[in-house]
């Protein structure tokens, strides 16, 4: 083990703080965006809306079967060649949302499908209308059973933010790569990097496992 240069760590702590905030903003933005894509998308798939269903299904397949790295390179370097220019941050947010949207659609759709046909028939038999059934019977149960998958997707997206450094977004990875190149303080930079992700993910992960437990208790006793 080489000696750790604590002075280096202290000097660069503020940089890591800023990069952490940026990574967090990106991750939360992507989670929000992908949920906004996911809800209508899953409803379109569930209700088999004509034409739209095919578009959504194709999107889900594409977003889930291509790496974020290739998506980002295409958005950031590919599209400007045909006249579409974006900032790195916009690109990163778009790419992460594009990726996460596909995963969220699947998670929510599976949640909706977990509510069985008999539940819907039982709701029909007391005269509830379709919109009432969706709002009062299906959605609460669907969201509850989708919580574990949604939580996994959120953590997945937070971790995937690590890739955006490749398109010059000043996130934790980008900063680390830069510092290693500049000062050759490999151990210190990587320590700060790992610490950054632990600070980012662990609270979220704990929060979600709390939520999952609460939901499970509410649903199944």
């Amino acid at each position: 083990m080489p000696d750790i240069d604590f002075e280096f760590i202290v000097i660069h702590l503020p940089h890591y703080g800023r990069a952490l905030l940026l990574t967090l903003a990106l991750g939360l933005g992507a989670i929000l965006g992908s949920l906004l894509v996911g809800l209508p998308g899953s409803l379109i798939l569930h209700f088999r809306a004509p034409v739209l269903r095919r578009v959504v299904a194709a999107y889900v397949e594409f977003s889930r079967n291509t790496p974020l790295l290739a998506q980002l390179f295409f958005l950031y370097f590919g599209l400007p060649a045909v006249g579409i220019k974006w900032s790195g941050f916009t690109c990163a947010l778009t790419g992460l949302t594009f990726l996460g949207g596909g995963y969220m659609i699947e998670a929510l759709r599976a949640g909706i499908e977990a509510v069985g046909r008999p539940q819907i028939e039982s709701a029909l038999s007391i005269g509830l209308s379709r919109p009432q059934i969706a709002r009062l019977v299906v959605l609460p149960q669907a969201l509850a059973s989708a919580v574990p998958a949604l939580a996994a997707n959120c953590i997945f997206l937070l971790k995937e933010t690590s890739v955006v450094g490749i398109i010059a977004v000043a996130d934790l990875m980008h900063l680390t790569q830069g510092l290693i190149g500049l000062y050759y303080k490999t151990t210190e930079s990587l320590l700060l990097l790992v610490a950054g992700y632990v600070i980012l993910i662990v609270p979220v992960s704990l929060l979600f496992s709390r939520l999952e437990k609460a939901v499970r208790r509410a649903e199944f006793g």
């Binding site: 008999p118 039982s122 007391i126 005269g127 009432q132 009062l136 609460p140 149960q141 509410a218 649903e219």
Partner: peptide, 27 residues
């Protein structure tokens, strides 16, 4: 009215809310 083999109460609602769903929201 109809009653099913597998009861199909709404698991996310209390007995009270199961019973009020129809009278309040439908009727």
């Amino acid at each position: 009215g109809m009653v099913f083999q597998s009861y199909e109460l709404f698991p996310h609602l209390s007995v009270r809310d199961n019973l009020l769903l129809g009278p309040v929201h439908v009727q």
